[in-house]
C-alpha cells in the first residue's frame, strides 16, 4: 500500500461521508425548518395550514380561558395589530401570563385557529423573547406613532 493509495482511500471515504451528510442536511433543511410567523402574517394568510410553524406575540389581556375539559387552554396571541386564537392542551409553562410575550409552536388548523403543540416561555423573567420583539416590530405598530403625530 503506497502513501498515495492510502490517501486516495481516505479522501474517498471522507468524500462519501460528507456527501451522505450533505444529502441528509439538505433534505432536512427542506422539510424540517420551523418558520416564525407573527399574528399579522397569519391574518394575511401567508402561512401554510398544517405545517409546523412558530407563532409569537403577546398573550392578549383577558383572553386566557380554560375549556371545559379542564386541560385545554385557549388564548389569543397579538402583535397589537392582529390577533390569532390559539388552543393548547397541556400544562402552561410557569412564566405564561397575560400581557407577556410568548412563543408557541404548532400548526394552523383549517378554520384559522392555531393549535399549539408546545408553548415556550423563556427562563428570563425580565423581558420577552426576541422573536416576539421582532414580531411586534414587524407588525409596524411601534413605527406608526411618528406618522400619527405628524
Amino acid at each position: 500500500m503506497t502513501r498515495k493509495r492510502r490517501r486516495l482511500y481516505m479522501v474517498l471515504a471522507a468524500m462519501s461521508i460528507l456527501a451522505g451528510a450533505a444529502a441528509l442536511v439538505l433534505g432536512a433543511l427542506q422539510s424540517e425548518l420551523t418558520y416564525f410567523y407573527s399574528p399579522t402574517d397569519l391574518a394575511a394568510g401567508s402561512a401554510p395550514a398544517g405545517r409546523s410553524i412558530r407563532l409569537g406575540g403577546l398573550v392578549e389581556e383577558g383572553s386566557v380561558e380554560r375549556l371545559d375539559d379542564g386541560v385545554t387552554t385557549s388564548f389569543r396571541v397579538t402583535d397589537l395589530t392582529s390577533s390569532v386564537p390559539v388552543t393548547y392542551r397541556g400544562l402552561l409553562p410557569d412564566l405564561f401570563r397575560e400581557g407577556q410575550g410568548v412563543v408557541t409552536e404548532g400548526s394552523l388548523s383549517a378554520d384559522g385557529a392555531f393549535v399549539a403543540r408546545e408553548v415556550l416561555a423563556k427562563h428570563d423573567e425580565n423581558y420577552m423573547p426576541r422573536e416576539v420583539t421582532d414580531a411586534l416590530k414587524k407588525s409596524g405598530q411601534w413605527r406608526d406613532p411618528t406618522e400619527a403625530t405628524e
Binding site: N126, L136, Q141, D144
Partner: peptide, 27 residues
C-alpha cells in the same frame, strides 16, 4: 401604540421642550 410601546415596562425621558430624549425598553 402612539408611543411605540411594545412591552412593559418602558420608560421615556422627556426634556424641557417636551421632546422624547431617551427610551428604555425593559426594566
Amino acid at each position: 401604540i402612539d408611543w411605540g410601546v411594545y412591552g412593559l415596562p418602558e420608560t421615556f425621558i422627556i426634556d424641557r421642550s417636551g421632546r422624547i430624549r431617551y427610551r428604555r425598553a425593559g426594566q
